[in-house]
Design a protein around this nucleic acid. Sequence first.
DNA 1: GACAATATCTTGCTCATCGAGATTCTCGCT
DNA 2: AGCGAGAATCTCGATGAGCAAGATATTGTC
Lengths: 157, 157
Amino acid sequence: MADDVHDQDAGMRVVHLLRAITVELDQLGARFAARHALHPTDVRALICLLDAARTGEPATPGTLGARLGLNSAGTTALVDRLEKLGHVRRERDSRDRRRVLLNVDESAVTLGWSFFGPLIHEVVAVMGRFDAADQATIERFLTDVHETVTQQRTCQE
Amino acid sequence: MADDVHDQDAGMRVVHLLRAITVELDQLGARFAARHALHPTDVRALICLLDAARTGEPATPGTLGARLGLNSAGTTALVDRLEKLGHVRRERDSRDRRRVLLNVDESAVTLGWSFFGPLIHEVVAVMGRFDAADQATIERFLTDVHETVTQQRTCQE
DNA sequence: GACAATATCTTGCTCATCGAGATTCTCGCT
DNA sequence: AGCGAGAATCTCGATGAGCAAGATATTGTC
């Protein structure tokens, strides 16, 4: 039973750590936003768009708005802002001409890297201080947590 | 060199996982907010207040606003909202009557647990599937990452 | 006791987001 | 073909969170 208590303590400590990391990353994102005349929503939008670009799936205002929990009006305003800043370009889909495809400009990529690059580098370095077996453990843990959180989000309708 | 590339790949995968987890947690927080007539900022405020209560340090509008990056006007409006909903009570400090202490109501605690409790339980369960050595590894990794992120945030002025 | 410093609140404004509806385009059906 | 249902996006007016600047109340210092 002592082990159970111990397990739960480690679990709670990890929960608090994950929450603390989330809060810190949020604030870092907010600072990045303020420094480049962006709103927090704009940063989240760019992250989503870059993710989509990385996985090769097409991005449209509809999918973006759904991902961010915005309605159509807010999504239009968001894309307007990003387009005005030159981070995104609208482009009519030639197949389905109702749709608008969103292309992320190179400037947004370099902008993101200039700000988050150092942090990413640091985290990779932290990871590098663990041996291969431990790295696999960490990756497995984070994958499980990600799955759990995603499930929690989607199952609550 | 193949090992280097391998290390870096694992590092980048972990970075993406951490970011994905952050995004999911944000959206979960937003859903929690929408479901209880709260704004995202209100949720972040409650988290800060509960953190402060847990560590025993006194919470005031000033410290809260600083933590959230709000100015005094926004902080006043925020505390007004939370007080109107009964989640927080203002109370003049009897020693320094300029100050206002913020007391989190029990209702806010139970509200938070009713929503995030299941997720926390799940994450603890995920953690429980690892043996003690791996748990220590995970905790050490998250601690290092947290430190890195905090450092990155504070050093950028 | 007058003055600077601190903590909080008030006022007037900007702008992101929402709800509702208009517009443009696609596709199945006859 | 061509008409109508439905889908993707945009426009308009309203709401409200947050900001800048200043007001108010309280404390410590000379």
